[in-house]
């Protein structure tokens, strides 16, 4: 998995590419931990076609971090398959997740 980090002022966009499984979740964790300060964290899921519970857990960790620093948190461009996993776990009701 590759993660492209884009900072626009205080707004950080992480563009993920690949499978967000147990193996790649570690890398994602590293990237999230690097985030120092932000007013908004946006996860771009356009290239994410797979997410497992390990990936979900890292998304939740990231969301928690955003909450702690009072930053806005949102996931965008979520495809159908991944969205169904968010819905299944009820996470789509806890955070801002949209398919575009």
């Amino acid at each position: 998995m590759t993660i492209e980090k884009k900072e626009t002022g205080k707004e950080i966009t992480l563009k993920l590419d690949g499978w967000l499984d147990a193996i790649s979740a570690e890398k994602f964790t590293e990237v999230t931990e690097e985030i120092g300060e932000a007013s908004a964290i946006i996860l771009d899921f356009e290239k994410v076609e797979y997410i497992s519970s390990a990936g979900l857990r890292q998304v939740v960790t990231c969301a928690k971090k955003a909450k702690d620093m009072n930053a806005e948190f949102s996931i965008i461009k979520v495809n159908k398959e991944v969205m169904s996993i968010f819905s299944l776990t009820g996470l789509d009701k806890k955070m801002s997740i949209c398919s575009d």
Partner: peptide, 15 residues
């Protein structure tokens, strides 16, 4: 599986 503090457990088994 997700409370207010985003504590998740048993998520994999649930999925």
């Amino acid at each position: 599986y997700c409370d207010e503090d985003f504590q998740v457990g048993g998520l994999g088994r649930f999925l």
